[in-house]
Design a protein around this nucleic acid. Structure first.
Lengths: 200, 200
DNA sequence: TAAAAAACATACTACCTAGTATTTTATTAC
DNA sequence: GTAATAAAATACTAGGTAGTATGTTTTTTA
């Protein structure tokens, strides 16, 4: 049973280093050689654990990228409390909490969507799954807010969910072009106004 | 004077083919060789007109990409008429008018922002310029709408402008993951609700 | 403990990459 | 018409790319 652990450790190591490199330098700019240099293992180890680079890309999306979005943007939506407050907290606080690195390099998911989201159907399916998990959590929260009368009844939960996600991913990209946070503050101001209009 | 025309024609040809290939396959996946194969010229011609691939990338951004955004999303904002109607028309009609190809491959500007927007400051400056031209047009229109009492006085024009742009670019990326327009319809519904809240 | 299998290393292939050096062809200026 | 110059073609370099073939070491199983 020791071999399985070792194998799992290596696969995880490759996953972590490749996520890190994909995020910093992009998917296409990150070669298998570069990933394996970072792990201090060799190409032989890589092709023993993964069929090819696409399989690695998919593994990174379905594990690291998915977990990142889930932890940061999905799980908080299932917490108890006033629905609108949770929306505000999740979207605004998350943005404010980003490191310099995360502001400079944008959203790992959005980067992949725009770099390779139109290339392989397999990538589309994997990335779509993350978006839909996020969307479902938002719809759940908005519906709860309607029931609990903190959010207006007449709005379309799905439309609001998509509009929130779109704007968030959009600004993560745009922020990459700037050296300071002024653009984020404008976004937060725009978002706050929007959320206010959802209030009952 | 015939030589200058020929030179200009070649530069334009290279620009057009590279924009097309960057848009379809991405910037990094498009080699100088591929571009020149499309022009039916050779590498010698390329390096006679451009210093390197970065200079080509910048030229594509400052001409083709910029013009595309200007024609589709900026110029319409300077037309006369009810400000809110113009906002609706520009954002919603533009989205509805996209070809299958444009839906599949997203926004050329947003693709570049997310693929190379964190790599070179030169790219950032060039891309930022387009965003700011767009933003300025939106602020101008929203301010006009306030004056003409079709848009609420108490909103922040800049915040609304950034929120509109973010959501639009965001959905252009997300749409790449899907095979149909349902997600766009949800976005349009979300956008319509938002625009309605700007109304006086 | 020996054979089998898994984990990993080494060495390699075939091809693509940006960019350069040099030559040929077309155009312009005198 | 000829020298100079611009436009473009050809041939090349040095290094990176994904992936393969094969060998070695470690672990498991019988």
């Amino acid at each position: 049973m020791e071999q399985k652990q070792k194998s799992e450790f290596t696969k995880q190591l490759i996953l972590e280093e490749s996520f890190r490199l994909f995020y910093s330098n992009g998917f296409k700019s990150t070669s298998v050689d570069k990933v394996m240099l970072a792990t201090k293992l060799t190409k032989g180890a890589f092709y023993h654990h993964y069929k090819n680079k696409q399989e690695l890309g998919l593994a990174v999306i379905t594990t690291k990228v998915k977990e990142r979005v889930y932890d940061g943007m999905v799980a908080p939506l299932y917490q108890p409390g006033n629905a609108l407050d949770i929306l505000k907290a999740t979207f605004i606080d998350r943005l404010k909490s980003f490191s310099i690195h995360e502001k400079k390099h944008g959203c790992p998911m959005n980067n992949l969507i725009n770099e390779i989201g139109d290339e392989e159907i397999a990538y589309q399916i994997a990335l779509k799954k993350i978006i839909e998990e996020w969307q479902a959590a938002l719809i759940f929260l908005i519906d709860r807010g309607k029931l609990e009368k903190s959010i207006q009844q007449n709005i379309e939960s799905k439309a609001v969910a998509i509009y929130l996600i779109s704007a968030f991913e959009g600004i993560r990209g745009i922020r990459k072009l700037y050296q300071d946070d002024a653009i984020l503050e404008a976004y937060i101001s725009g978002l706050s106004f929007y959320l206010q209009k959802l209030e009952v």
